[in-house]
Write a protein that binds this DNA or RNA. Sequence first.
DNA 1: TTATTTACTTGCATTTTGCAAGTGCACATG
DNA 2: CATGTGCACTTGCAAAATGCAAGTAAATAA
Lengths: 131, 131
Amino acid sequence: MKKSKKRSDCPISCSLDIWGDKWSLLIVRDLMFFQKSTYGDFLRSSEKIATNILASRLQSLEDNGIIERSEHPDSKAKVLYRLTKKGIDLLPIFVEIHLWAEKYFPLPAEFEATIKEAKKDKDLYIRSRKR
Amino acid sequence: MKKSKKRSDCPISCSLDIWGDKWSLLIVRDLMFFQKSTYGDFLRSSEKIATNILASRLQSLEDNGIIERSEHPDSKAKVLYRLTKKGIDLLPIFVEIHLWAEKYFPLPAEFEATIKEAKKDKDLYIRSRKR
DNA sequence: TTATTTACTTGCATTTTGCAAGTGCACATG
DNA sequence: CATGTGCACTTGCAAAATGCAAGTAAATAA
């Protein structure tokens, strides 16, 4: 299921080996900023990830301790995904990516609020995400 | 040559569309932290990028304004690659990735010094890279 | 009891990656 | 000034990853 051999000992390279693909960080983004938490939620994101790719990325994120599966309060048919501490700790990276993007792309307004809130008080924000 | 259609307007997604693959950030890393600046330099990095992939990534990074090609002072046979402002502005992202990695992987000592210096005085560091 | 929702899996075509072997220009050497 | 070597790529092909459509199985809703 996993074949992620690490390419080198470089911390950047090791990090990319885990989440440096086109989809992983988007799933983390959905969990971190958009309160998405189920398979269906992720599928419905505007980037339209393929269902098999989603499954494989969720598996790999779980294998790498970035997310964890748990029971969904609403139904046994649902699975609730959430960020682990290791996953939540990716927040500063997202903030910096956002700052960079802000500088070099025109940004849709809907994102401003979300990230600005995160920047304002990181700890409060993290705690508010009920972990 | 380029087919990078953007998947959505999300700033994270747009950023990943540019450099969110397994190799692009490693090239930027080499330019930013290890004074590598030629095709051969990148090829010799410990992750062992394939030569055709390197060529395509360099092209795409250039197309996206992250790096620029210029004449090499030593020889016409060489090409000197360097980061643009847009590329240098990725530095804070690297710093955060490194902080994250530091927390979750054991780190080889050689990287400590380099990144610590960068964190210490970002502007000075950037200026020292002769742009 | 049947239909629908949810989380996947499977099969196959397309795309991207990886590897090995070129190619062509520049420069150094004899 | 011919010839070899270094450098920046290309090319061709095999292997892996991705994307798409359809299917499956358990749980809930009607």
